[in-house]
Amino acid sequence: MSYINREIAVSLSFMFFGAAILYSVYNINVVEGVNAIYTHSYIIPNFVTAVLFDWRGFDTLGECLILINSVLVTGMVFGRGLFNSEFLKEVYGNQKKLNIDEIEGFTPIIKVLAIPMSIILMILGVYVILGGHITPGGGFQGGSLIAASYILAIVSFGIRNCPINFNHKFLETLESFGALIFLILGLTGIAVSGYYLLNIHSLFGMNVFPSPTGLENAGIIPYLNTAVGLKVLAGLSTITTLLSSERVIVKNISD
């Protein structure tokens, strides 16, 4: 009986929300509000990026710091600075001891395909980062794509034999440089106009980011995109490395 009641509830809610969505789509109507400011004060063709990096640059900086925090927390729980090993002992303590050298990994088919796919995915990530100010995409998406290529390589080859060697120092450098470039670009805004993260279009009569005709107002947005891309790539890759290093975790627990 309760099963039927649940079915009826699901059907009713589905109908209600479906009707509400259809009704709102039918009556969709653009009200001249904030969007009028964006469309009349032309910054760059991609309005989402204009909002993310120009109008709300501070907000994006905060989002980047959230990512840094998440990496720090993952490092504290799973990395070398183990914060509370009781939880990990419960999860990993009762496992049979695996000899990692004996694990052969995936079949050659996957191994052969994984590397070209990783490389192409990596370059696609760079392309998405670069086109962030004119096409849908940007630093977050491109960085995630590059991290996905790294994850693909790790899944296929394992962390020990992974052909893409994002070592600790490299990731740390990328993460630091990404955040530092963002902050320094914000400071140039203060130096030029007195506002933090102000989009400077030209400096000493030269375009900040040399672009073709029609894109002169891009300003510092492509640089910010690149910085965020490097940061996201480093952050996600660090989390992946930490979570996939089971051997390190088991070793740390036993110490």
């Binding site: 990596m122 980062i129 893409i164 060697n165 492509p222 490097l230």
Partner: peptide
């Protein structure tokens, strides 16, 4: 210029591939 920035980022990633 955009492509040259891409080349630089690509180079950064390329030196990590063994």
């Amino acid at each position: 210029f955009l492509s040259l920035v891409g080349m630089l980022v690509g180079f950064l990633l390329g030196i990590t591939i063994n």
